[in-house]
Design a protein around this nucleic acid. Structure first.
Lengths: 194, 194, 194, 194
DNA sequence: AATGAATGAGTATTCATTCAT
DNA sequence: AATGAATGAATACTCATTCAT
């Protein structure tokens, strides 16, 4: 209702939409609600985006681009513990910098995302990450370790109940646990783990 | 359109609802759709349940009861690696026996569940499980390990790409990784806990 | 707004829709308007018909059936002036009995009907009639005469300005002119025309 | 998307509008659609015309003027078969020269035209033409013959199925049939009608 | 001569729910 | 144990139109 005219209308729509979609879910959030929060009419949303789905896609788009960059660099890294550490570290940096909101958005809307083009691309990227973290092994256990290493980053936000943990601390903890998981991959644990 | 009339109408409603809610999400699934699949009218659903939410709750209810049993038994177990193994093993048994559908249902509908009483209870139980798996430690890393041990069970269904893995094999893999995580908890191997 | 409960709701919807579609056009007539005239809600319309288009189709359906019957009988008639007289007479009977409303409806909504399945079928039937009235000749002029014979029936409603003409009289006039046109077909004018 | 920039924007708008209104109907055609086809914005349309209706009126205007000229000349012609031939010939010339598009536009949008000032004027002119073609007779049958003579011109475009007929040929056929109709007018029925 | 941004009123359609039978 | 008929409130989306630039 109040229009704190920060930024162009287009990006204000994206911000409010991201927030509401995350809180209440994509389906449950109506365009009326978004418009009201911004103090504009529904028709204004349609001036900037041609459908509800397009709002989602536009929000997802730049996270997708950043993920793609990470994935590209990951391909060039050595297929060993050190390489995997580097990959997950980059992912954690991205996640804690721009990410929590976008990722929570994604996790909170899994079913909706199944049928949204932006969502499907997100899925693909995550599976690509997992694949890259478990390159060179076919072991099911290793694949699972790679997946959990990734989830370690995501989960650190809500699974760790420590009341007043900074994001920096959460990231450190998340990486610590992720490293343990990644180091077990391939049956070649680094020397000093025992 | 007419499902095989197996079981009472009431339980057929629950089964179809669970399936559709999981596939398409709670919000996206309409009572009309459920009714049509069963070959009855919407009004029939209202004979058996007094609202859409109540269908969800009734579906969740017995899983909740079983989870409660597991949690109760968990309280009596020793606060060491062996105890944790026993807890997670029981959880895995439940999950792979009745569970995948119910759990996927839950994971696919996180936002909806935030505002559904059955969902909130599910959340509580999961956090209780994580708490029990990391009893006796305040370490954030340990809490995260406990959470990931739980997610190891859930993730084994989709994160492991092995094409033709049986549920039995998935369970074994999930527990293998879960054990690694749980065994790292506390840095104080069973002895010094008392 | 007033609900003179004549007939089932379903057929009252059809009647009101036909009337409004004819007066104002299909596109210009909203379901809200139809519902209001009937004193029901829009949702009630959707209980009886699954879309706006379906209302049109259902209205057109029985006229279509009657037209088909006429066409079928027309096939069995001799391919001469007498046969053509019989065909057009039957058509005129149908038109003046049930028809004016339905036909005006059709003529007033030509563009809409192009994209409505019921409309396309109507078109087909009319062209079939024209074809049957000009069977056995390839002469363009004859085809045109056949078409105008048909339009003679339709046009008699509005083209004849005589203020207080009964439908019976209009039909007689229409058939008189139609006969002239049909009798010229095929270069075999009936004996006394020259 | 960008049309060949032939002619001023104003007349390009008229051309595209006429085309779309005829194909899809006035109501169904949106200004957005027209603007997109031209590669301009909707607001540009409003620079040239002050409303949607005004676009229609402007398109109709010059046809109206030409019709008026024909009607004026018609008044001066003798009230006999030869005079009527001259009138209909002039009308056919106009119709086949500029007309088919404009006339189809009119016929395809009858309901819309009822409430559009340009449309009402078109109606008037057509009835005036019919009146002039049946001057001097009160016979309903003659009025109908006059109307059908006019429709003969219009119908020749679609009612004659001859695949590759030129407009010139269609005109000839149309006039042949129109003449037959007009020659019967005047209460001087051919011998055998009684 | 035109655009970018927006609006107010409307559209068809869907939904969860109710209730008399 | 269920249906047929209906409702009120909502939804995504579209339209003709306006106006400052």
């Amino acid at each position: 209702m109040v229009s704190e005219s920060t930024g162009s209308t287009r990006s204000r729509i994206q911000a409010v939409a991201l927030e509401l979609f995350t809180e209440q879910g994509y389906e449950k959030t109506s365009l009326r609600e978004i418009a009201e929060r911004l103090g504009v009419t529904k028709a204004a949303l349609y001036y900037h985006f041609k459908s509800k789905e397009e709002i989602v896609n536009s929000v997802v788009e730049d996270r997708l681009a950043r993920l793609d960059a990470i994935i590209e660099r990951a391909h060039t890294r050595p297929d060993d513990a050190a390489g995997r550490h580097a990959i997950i570290a980059e992912y954690a940096d991205e996640f804690f910098q721009h990410g929590p909101s976008a990722m929570r958005f994604f996790e909170q809307n899994q079913t909706a995302f199944k049928h949204l083009s932006g969502g499907q691309q997100m899925r693909e990227r995550l599976f690509a990450m997992i694949g890259l973290l478990s390159r060179g092994t076919d072991s099911p256990a290793d694949q699972l370790r790679a997946a959990l290493a990734l989830f370690s980053i995501h989960s650190s936000l809500f699974a760790v109940r420590g009341p007043e943990l900074s994001n920096e601390e959460r990231k450190r903890v998340a990486l610590e646990v992720a490293h343990e998981l990644l180091d077990t991959i391939d049956g070649k644990p680094p020397a000093g783990t025992d």
